[in-house]
Amino acid sequence: MPTTPPPTESGRVADQFDDIDQQREANLFGMWLFLATELLLFGGVFAGFVVFRVIHGEAFAEAAGHLDLALGTLNTALLLTSGLTMALAEQLVNAARRRAALAMLLATLALGAAFLAIKAYEWHHEYMERLMPVLGLPFEYPGKHPQQAELFFNFYFALTGLHAFHMLVGLCILGVLAILTWRWRDPPRIARQVQISGLYWAFVDVLWVVVFTLLYLLRL
């Protein structure tokens, strides 16, 4: 079983940096830069959805009523809780509490996997209801505005699919972090890796809050 020496203040500095503070700042700035590009990717779809939500207000509100609000709310609660466990993992790694940090990382992983499982169940339900207008599948909408509803469900699957892909990437990163934390070979480096991965995970939380609000809650 690996021992748990505390992370030192410095750790090994990469060649291109003057000191560890500069390296840490560059890590954070690099991740925020990446997240800004992600915001551009999602922002375009959000803006498109908002425009069509205004143009086809009644039809989109009616289509939103066909989504499962209870499951969407449960998934949001799971993801917010995973944001907490990830933030705690970061604190615990900094405090050199390896076992507790590992437990929090695994809890984050489990919560993320539960989110995807519920999302898959929702998609399956919509497939059975013939509300999945993708890959040439039949779309049979029982409401008054089938064409506009098809557009809504196109947005729904594009946004939730894109978000689920980001969740999958996040789960892979969490898996690697869990292994690195279990080995505990370079604690300062692990602390930096957990910090920037935590930024990504929290950003996926933010994106879901927007997706959940736009798709599930604006049903008026």
């Binding site: 933030a87 910090q195 935590g198 933010v206 809650l217």
Partner: peptide
Amino acid sequence: ALCMIALIITLFMG
């Protein structure tokens, strides 16, 4: 929703 996003960005994202 805006309050939730602000909380996540300021606290969880540090």
